[in-house]
Amino acid sequence: MKLPELQRALGDLCLSETPDPALAEALGDHPSRWVIYRELVRGRALTALREALPGSARDLGPEGLERLASRFLAEAPPSSRYVRDLAPGFVGFVLGRPELTRELAPWTLERLRYEGALHEAAIAPEPCLAGVRDFAMDRPAAFTPAGRFLRVRWAVWTETPTPEPYETALFLVRDEATGRVTTLVLSPIAGDIVALALEGDRDLTACVREALARHQESAGVAFLEGLSELLTAWLEQGVLLGSR
């Protein structure tokens, strides 16, 4: 075999779900030793997934994680050179293949989505301030690209293995001073404000007004003070970069 064929054969042997025994024979040398590479490649992928998605790994169990990872490696193998991109790729693959996860507990996919978002927030590139202006309520808000917003039906951000039903909105924010990610559990109004603001086409005052109207609330003193404190904190932490 020529060089490209040899490398393709070793790639197939490492990534396919059930490798063809003929691949090891074709690669030559000691055919039984090629399995070492299969174990190393798959072991590294599993370790990266367990580290990035610890709660989901626990939910799925070792065999469940291995089964899904095996399908992922065979059908949607990593296309990024960065190990850090493995978990987001895996989460996207599993969420896009409901037939693979029908037997799982109802919160499992939600925890996977949550942990995938948490990982993405942790590794997202640092914010680019081009086009960002000083913060003003009458302009659209500019959030850090590290923020992740999601709605959940289970308390998947808690450590508990069997989370309670809890319908809410989460905002995963990275403090740019420390680089640490925090999960904010938002009130219904705050959830709507953030969701509307992240759409990016309306000024922040309009987002606040619409969210209040949806919940038939008005902007009392306590609400305005709370909103002001939150926005100030987000501006200090780099969660909110300014306005567009």
Partner: peptide
Amino acid sequence: CFSAVGARELLDLLPIPFTCES
């Protein structure tokens, strides 16, 4: 070594043949 083939990243260090072509 090689670490990717056919746009598939193997995320490991795999051996290349000790041949003139390689």
